[in-house]
Design a protein around this nucleic acid. Structure first.
Lengths: 225, 225
DNA sequence: TGCATCCAACGTACTGCGTAGTATGTTTCT
DNA sequence: AGAAACATACTACGCAGTACGTTGGATGCA
């Protein structure tokens, strides 16, 4: 792992940079990269541009850091649930739920990460920024590869029908990631309610692969409705 | 020009406005609404802003028209395949394939339509524009309602398990619409190849609903099990 | 047929504003 | 004293929108 990833990506919203990242994620989520201004971010923080430009050299660099932190959240959550040995389809279910829980609890960062996907920034970036962008997209490819790998394992094990893995992983991720588009966090929405949503979406995605009709719930959770 | 949906929405790229719409869809797809300039659109056409502002009062109005035309494409394709009477799951499969074929053949318009979903444009729109925006979003809700209705029919007929229809329709549309994110049209990509992709994605989405494992051949007619 | 008129469909040239980025104070902590 | 962590004040520029000029084709009329 030639890590571009260091621990600073996982530190919480504490610290000045963490607060800036949170505010930037919020602003970019609301208006998008191009429409959101640095002053918007500063307003959320109740400060001025000076503070932001003291920590980040440009708006693009700030965006990259938000994007990267969003990806780091995904990676950490999914990797941690890949520690245990499970059958591929059970593993995929856990990964999907973990991903969805991150999406719903960190909707701002996750929407920014999706924005980064659609954005080309062609021409309007410096060579150094393009290098950073490539690194982030590689990070995302690796992330999608974690899911693709498990799907491939399931296919090789005969747990799901023969199919174009490169294609269905897109549909799989789509079913999950579309959550960033429609989901709105409600006040007083319990963790349990979020988990119900996550499991329902994850079940949909798992069934989409064509496995056994009734994917069992997690052994620890034990939630047969 | 404050008419709602008329036949002009379905006219092809011919005509001056049609050309402008095509160019605008291209520009908005490449850079997004905020980053794309009217001059970008003009450059694609090889003309100047004058031509565009002669036909559209503002950038937002132009965007709305592209969005609306994208939705009209979807509606026409899906409605036309709803003419025949089919079992709900068969109907859904045809609808999904039709939707995906439109997405792949009109990727620019479809990506703009997705952009419109994420965009709030809060505050920076006139009351009249907000009214137009509401109309378009209503159009999209109705479109999603076509799919939700068929899913509900399938559920009521016992063809798929009991589940939260409002939730799974999001996952369903996500599996389909995510195509706007990852799909790139290849040169020399045959219609048959596109159909193969569409059917593979559609199968995934159909299986996600939890219907019969094999592509619907078994008679699902009859009351609840 | 020839000509004048009118207007749609642009092109040209310009303005005003929002915003990214910078240069330079000012404060607090070590 | 020095530097990190900001705030303040400013500039440069891109872009949406506008005012106005230009052209070509349709129409009316002698």
């Amino acid at each position: 792992m030639s890590s571009v990833i260091d621990e600073s990506l996982l530190e919480g919203g504490e610290g000045s940079r963490g607060e800036i990242l949170d505010a930037a994620a919020e602003a970019f989520m609301r208006k998008g990269f191009a429409a959101a201004s640095i002053d918007d971010v500063a307003d959320i923080l109740g400060c001025t541009k000076g503070r932001i430009y003291h920590h980040y050299r440009s708006k693009a660099d700030l965006f990259f850091d938000v994007h990267r932190r969003g990806m780091a959240m995904d990676l950490q959550a999914v990797r941690s649930c890949m520690a245990e040995e499970r059958a591929p389809l059970d593993q995929l279910f856990e990964m999907a739920v973990a991903h969805l829980m991150v999406v719903m609890s960190q909707i701002a960062y996750q929407r920014v990460a999706v924005q980064g996907l659609e954005m080309h920034l062609a021409g309007q970036t410096t060579p150094e920024q393009r290098k950073t962008l490539r690194a982030i997209l590689t990070m995302r490819d690796e992330y999608e590869g974690l899911f693709a790998g498990e799907i491939e394992r399931a296919r090789a094990a005969g747990a799901i029908p023969e199919q174009d893995v490169h294609l269905v992983v897109k549909a799989f991720m789509g079913a999950l990631n579309w959550t960033t588009i429609w989901y709105r966090q409600r006040r007083n929405q319990s963790q349990a309610e979020r988990r119900r949503i996550a499991e329902e979406i994850a079940r949909f995605a798992l069934r989409g692969l064509g496995g056994p009709p009734a994917p069992a719930a997690a052994p620890a959770a034990g939630g047969k409705a």
